[in-house]
Amino acid sequence: MRFKEWLGDAKQRLMTNIANRTFKKNPGLLDRLAIRFLRSSIGEVPHDPELDHPEN
């Protein structure tokens, strides 16, 4: 049980560390790999026309 807990906790810490790498403004090599991993797992988010407003 404790191992399962440890594994679950470690996974979340790893995911947070990966996420933090994607939040860098000047990404290094590992950061760019993290961004690539993120893009491959989430994919591109298409533009949502509901967000558009007419100019006024």
Binding site: D9, Q12, R13, T16, N17, N20, F23, K25
Partner: peptide, 8 residues
């Protein structure tokens, strides 16, 4: 950074 999350 534009964001930083403290590892849980």
């Amino acid at each position: 950074n534009y964001m930083y999350i403290q590892p849980p």
